[in-house]
Each structure stands twice: as structure tokens, then as C-alpha cells.
Write a protein that binds this DNA or RNA. Structure first.
Lengths: 236, 236
DNA sequence: GCGTTCAGTGAACGCTCGTACACTCAATAG
DNA sequence: CTATTGAGTGTACGAGCGTTCACTGAACGC
């Protein structure tokens, strides 16, 4: 019986599962055809994200991705029209941690005092937990193909306008114009993105560096906040 | 006489030259062999920079670049070991406008009052004059190959430390630690880079957008400067 | 003058690439 | 139970890739 014949048998997936501290093999039959399709599709997205960590999306070939996902090149087309289309889907997928970040920050804010410290800590956590997603977004934001770049830009603009709303609440008393608010939000988002990229470039080395970068981001945001206290619209 | 035979004749270059408002063809004999080599080398760098404007360096093939430069693929190796090596050289070349920027800003500062307004104007001019270089640096800073990325990072770090020195002079009276100075310089450089990327993304559309982006950058830097006035080290 | 140097040539190599096409066969629908 | 569907297969194609190699002939050094 050759290895090829195995594949002709009813579909079976083998997963590693940790139970009671021991690793054992669990055989999971995947019933639905739609479910199996979704699994392959997700696998394509996953392996692409993994491969992207060292290189750019443009340098990845359809064949290479298909190979890594364990399917034949032609089967790729059952899921995506092209590598570019896969890239656009990947933007959506990678934006999830970023959206989660906003939710976390807003929930935490109600609790106690230091918004900046908390926000930076949340940023650090998200980057540490989802490095591949953030790396993908950083890499492709300016370096990528047109469609992917545009998709990322749209999402980031959304992020900035969310922050603008938050800033409007915080400065409810002062005479801030919406233009000034947006300008400030943009400055803060730019600072955070700069921090993300710095975090991604050092994560191989020691944890102290990571702390130093987060501490720097904290001080930078604090500096901006101090400026906000003195700002009045005629300043610009 | 075939077109190929023309190339066997002593080397001749045909340039467009504008003289007295009229365009005429000037035939320039290039004497030195070294000089001709340098010309080809520069041509390789130039065509690469041009092609990069739409795509990433990684998606450019050696053959494609050689073809655009009008030489055979093998001749490429007379000038660069690989496309990556060419990329590293291109970083050096593209950094020249950025270095010029610092010199311009320092010269202008001695003259009169508004450092921020002048610096932002200089930034705008440099980006408008050398869009290809700035686009290359933006694209490859995070998206590019390892060697290129590292080369850009080194130069940007140098840029930040130059600015740190300038800030030290400006805050001579206050109790700024070198750590705080660097943190602030980093914030400002990050803001300027963000501005550069914004400028590059809109330059196809109207001039008003460009002015709006520069105005925003001016206000952002002013906000930071205001923060500096209130800052003291214990803030961080 | 004359042998040397070396930027550029052109054919040939063994790859990988995207895409086309006809196919298989388990899951699904009726 | 049977017919249809559709995710995945396998072969084949023409094209482009990086790199090798032996070469040409104008510019150069002596």
C-alpha cells in the first residue's frame, strides 16, 4: 500500500492534543464537506502568515503556499482567485487582534487611572500574542501589492477615527476642533505603529529590550498628552 | 548593417539637451572605460529605482533590471554580486536627500524664528524633489530583504541621533536626560516618516492634499514641542 | 606598436512558475 | 439507491528565472 492510497480513504485528520499533561494522538473524523473546505482554506491562510514572517507576500508563489498547505497547486483556485485575493483576506484576518486591542483598551479605561500605561501594556500583549499578524500588516502596509495596501490603509483609518472619538470624550471640556482631534489621534496611532514595528524587530533578543520599547512608547504618549494640556487651536 | 553592428563602433551616447529653450541631440563621446562602467552602474541603480515605484524590490528580477538598463543579464554581475547587493547600494544613494535635509534644516535654523515650519517645508520639498528615493526607503524599510532593511535602519538611527544632538542644544537650560532627548527625537522622526509616507500616497491627486498633510505634520510637531515645555523627567 | 584587461555578449543549463485540462471519488441531495 | 456536486489530483505547457561558460573587441599600460 503506497502513501498515495491512504488519501483515498474517508477523510481523517490527526491532531496533537494535550490531555492530563500527556500528549496523545487523537483521530478526528471530519464529517461535513463544507467543514473540510473551510479547514483547507484556513490552512492556506495560516501557512501564508507563517511564511510571510521572513519575506514579503509578493515573493511568495502560489505553488509554494499550496505545497506548504499540503495541496496541489490547482486546488488553490478552489479557495482563492489569486495570491493577491488571499492577501486581502489575510488583512481582514490580521486586523482582528487590532480590533480586539481597542475593545480591551475601552473596557480597561472604565476601571482606574492610567490610560496610557494600560493602553501601552495592551499593545505589548497583543503584539506578543499575535506577532505574525502584526508583522504581516507592518510589512505589507507600504511594501505590498496595491489591493493589500489599500485594505490595510482603510482599516488603519478606521482605527484612527475610533481613537478620535475617544479623544473627543476625554477633551470634552476644552475647545478642541475635530481637525485638531484627528491630528492628535493620527500622531498617537503613528507612535503606536512605530512601537509595534520596533517590538517586532527585537523580539528575538531579550525581554529587557521589549520593556524598554514599551517604556519609551509610554513616555512618548505622555509627552503628547502633556502637549494637549497646553494646546489651543490657534497654536496650529 | 544590422543594429547589432552599431554597438561594435566606438562608444557613443546620445543625450537630450535643452539649449536656449530648444531641444537638440548632442552626441557625447565617452572616453574612459572606467567612466563608461560607472555610467552603466548608475543606470542599473536608476532603472531599479524607477521600477521600484510600483512594486517591491523582492519582486524585481535580475533579468528584468538588466533588460531595462540595456545590458545582458550576465553583464549585471560586473557591477553587483546580486540584486540584494544592488539594494544595499540603493539605500546609500537614497539616503542622500535625507542627509541633505538635515543640512538644509541646520543652515535655515540660524536665520530666523520658526524651526518647525521651516523643517516641515524642507521635508515637503525633499519628498517632492526625490519621490522615488523616499518611496524606495518607505517600501523597503519593513517590507524588504534583511540586508536592505538593516541598512535603512542603521541610517535612520543615525538620523535620530543627529536630531537628538540638535534637541540637546535647544533644551540646554532644562534638565533633560539623554534618554528623554532620544525618546523625543524618536517621536519626531516617527512623525516625519509618517508624513513622508502620507505624502507619497497622495502625490497623484491635488496639491491641496499635500498642503493639508504638511500642515498636519506642523501641528503635530508643535504639539510635541508644547509637551516638551511642560515635561520633566519624572513624567516618564 | 602590442599584449593585457575587462565590460559586455549570447547560447545553454536545470529550475520554478502560473495556468489549462481531464480526471477521481467521497459527500450530498433527491 | 442513484445522480450530482465539487475539493483535490496529476500531467502537461510555455515562459521566465539565476547562473555557467566560452567568447569578443575597444580601451589601456607599457
Amino acid at each position: 500500500m503506497s502513501t498515495k492510497d491512504v488519501r483515498r480513504v474517508p477523510h481523517v485528520t490527526i491532531d496533537d492534543q494535550a490531555v492530563n499533561g500527556r500528549t496523545l494522538l487523537a483521530v478526528t473524523e471530519v464529517r461535513s464537506r463544507a467543514e473540510r473546505k473551510e479547514r483547507t482554506r484556513q490552512n492556506l491562510l495560516d501557512v501564508t502568515l507563517t511564511m510571510i514572517s521572513n519575506r514579503s507576500l509578493a515573493s511568495l508563489s502560489l505553488r509554494e503556499v499550496a505545497r506548504a498547505a499540503g495541496i496541489v497547486p490547482t486546488a488553490f483556485y478552489r479557495h482563492f482567485e489569486s495570491m493577491d485575493a488571499l492577501g486581502v483576506e489575510l488583512v481582514d484576518e490580521s486586523m482582528r487582534p487590532l480590533r480586539q486591542m481597542i475593545r480591551d483598551a475601552r473596557r480597561g479605561r472604565a476601571a482606574h487611572g492610567d490610560i496610557i500605561k494600560d493602553s501601552v501594556a495592551i499593545l505589548g500583549n497583543q503584539v506578543r500574542t499575535h506577532p505574525a499578524q502584526f508583522r504581516f500588516l507592518s510589512r505589507e502596509r507600504y511594501g505590498g501589492v496595491g489591493a493589500v495596501r489599500r485594505a490595510i490603509d482603510t482599516e488603519l483609518r478606521l482605527f484612527t477615527s475610533e481613537l478620535t472619538v475617544d479623544l473627543a470624550r476625554l477633551t470634552a471640556g476644552a475647545d478642541w476642533t475635530s481637525d485638531d482631534l484627528e491630528m492628535t489621534a493620527d500622531l498617537m496611532v503613528s507612535t503606536m505603529l512605530n512601537t509595534v514595528m520596533a517590538l517586532l524587530e527585537v523580539d528575538k533578543r531579550h525581554v529587557e529590550d521589549e520593556q524598554a520599547i514599551l517604556h519609551r512608547a509610554e513616555r512618548q504618549l505622555r509627552l503628547v498628552a502633556l502637549g494637549m494640556g497646553v494646546w489651543h487651536s490657534s497654536s496650529g
